[in-house]
């Protein structure tokens, strides 16, 4: 596990001396099953199953506070990205199912149009997650204010976008 993550994100991960600076500054630690410093330790210990099925990796909001503060220049936010990607690649069930479904819907919108079409993207997310009724009133309010477009804008350079998505693994 550690070799794989080091390969994806750099060898700095070996430098962690568990100072807990990342955990204490993380604005989302209280919602995680393992705070960021523990995640790093778990990688050291090779606890793959626990890591890839943890809530933490889907709660992390990519705020980059940990990465900015780590005294050993360990890019913890990047490691969280790598763990999310490994989770999907290795066929684990993402513990933050809705977060995963949202990102997938977002990416599929880019794949279709080159840009994000909010209405279509949210529709797809709702269909897959089953959260039909959340934020419906809010969505309608925003539509009335002219913030939500009914139809997507497709870019001209869709060939470039197709090429990019060909290279995608997950």
């Amino acid at each position: 596990m550690i070799e794989r993550i080091a390969e994806l994100t750099g060898n700095e991960i070996y430098r962690c001396y568990q100072c807990q600076k990342c955990s204490s500054g993380c604005p989302f630690a209280q919602y995680m099953d393992f705070p960021p410093a523990v995640i790093i330790r778990m990688i050291h210990f090779g606890m793959k199953e626990k890591l890839l099925s943890s809530e933490t990796i889907w709660v992390c909001a990519s705020c980059e506070t940990c990465t900015t503060r780590c005294p050993n220049e360990i890019d913890i936010a990047h490691i969280m990205d790598a763990l999310r990607q490994e989770c999907v690649r290795e066929g684990f069930k993402p513990a933050g199912k809705n977060v995963y479904l949202f990102h997938s819907a977002f990416m599929s919108s880019i794949k279709s149009y080159g840009r994000v079409h909010e209405l279509g993207m949210l529709g797809k997310y709702k269909l897959k997650s089953g959260n039909f009724f959340d934020d419906l009133k809010l969505g309608y309010d925003m539509y009335k204010k002219g913030k939500i477009k009914l139809f997507p804008h497709k870019i001209k350079g869709m060939r470039d976008i197709k090429k990019i998505f060909k290279k995608i693994i997950n």
Partner: peptide, 10 residues
């Protein structure tokens, strides 16, 4: 935020 969560190259 979605692309870097799911695929770094993309």
């Amino acid at each position: 935020t979605s692309a870097h969560c799911l695929d770094e190259k993309a």
